[in-house]
Computed example of a mutant assay.
Amino acid sequence: MPTPNPDALDFLLTRRSRPAKTLVAPAPDRAALAPILTAGLRVPDHGKLEPWRLVVLEGAALTRLAEVATRRAQKVGMDPDKAAKAAQMFSGAPLIVAVISAPVESEKVPEIEQLYSAGAVCLSLVNAALAAGWGANWLTGWTATDPAFLGEALNLRAPAEVAGYIVIGTETTAPPDRPRPEVEAKVTWVDE
């Protein structure tokens, strides 16, 4: 018989990302962030390729990324509201962990599977931050895939890109739960 972990299952059944705009300082310091990062990297990784890495963004780095996003948006003639939203994601965040998807050349493990592993890191970081008592949210947007932004802001070159920006901070308000999918509508049982 399996040994259940009811606390862990209850956490997973009730977990809820926190809207990034409701997260404020303080954010976890390095000591508090270390176990969150460690837990975040405990994900499925076929071939042990580690096709991801993390960049912790805080303080002046977040201000700089907001400025880079604003310049890039203006250069391409982006809608001002969309540009402001991207800049605010950085300037308004107490701390962001950028999960970099960095596929590794492999005959055995397809690139898409490596991308899924980076996505698993994103969710694992959010869950670890929530379990540690912080508020957390997984964001993306055009700054996650725009090559010019990524090159200037994070010194990334293709095929590397951002699988997710994980915003972590102190929760100011508890969000209401949102409607969840009905299991019966999403699950098909096959027994023959």
Score class of each variant (00 low, 15 high):
residue 3 T to M: 08
residue 4 P to G: 08
residue 7 D to N: 15
residue 18 R to G: 07
residue 19 P to C: 00
residue 20 A to I: 10
residue 31 A to E: 13
residue 31 A to R: 15
residue 32 A to E: 13
residue 34 A to T: 03
residue 42 R to S: 08
residue 45 D to E: 06
residue 51 P to C: 02
residue 51 P to R: 02
residue 56 V to E: 00
residue 56 V to W: 01
residue 57 L to F: 04
residue 57 L to H: 04
residue 60 A to R: 09
residue 62 L to Q: 07
residue 64 R to W: 04
residue 65 L to R: 05
residue 66 A to W: 00
residue 67 E to V: 11
residue 67 E to Y: 07
residue 68 V to C: 02
residue 68 V to G: 01
residue 68 V to I: 11
residue 76 V to D: 08
residue 83 A to P: 03
residue 88 Q to E: 15
residue 89 M to D: 03
residue 97 V to K: 02
residue 97 V to E: 03
residue 98 A to I: 06
residue 98 A to M: 08
residue 98 A to L: 05
residue 99 V to K: 07
residue 104 V to I: 11
residue 111 E to K: 13
residue 111 E to A: 13
residue 112 I to F: 10
residue 113 E to S: 06
residue 117 S to N: 05
residue 121 V to L: 08
residue 124 S to V: 05
residue 124 S to F: 02
residue 133 G to S: 12
residue 135 G to T: 03
residue 142 W to G: 11
residue 143 T to D: 13
residue 144 A to K: 02
residue 146 D to S: 00
residue 151 G to E: 11
residue 152 E to N: 04
residue 163 A to N: 05
residue 171 E to R: 12
residue 177 D to R: 15
residue 178 R to Q: 15
residue 180 R to A: 14
residue 181 P to T: 15
residue 181 P to F: 10
residue 185 A to L: 09
residue 187 V to T: 06
residue 189 W to C: 09
residue 192 E to L: 11
residue 192 E to I: 12
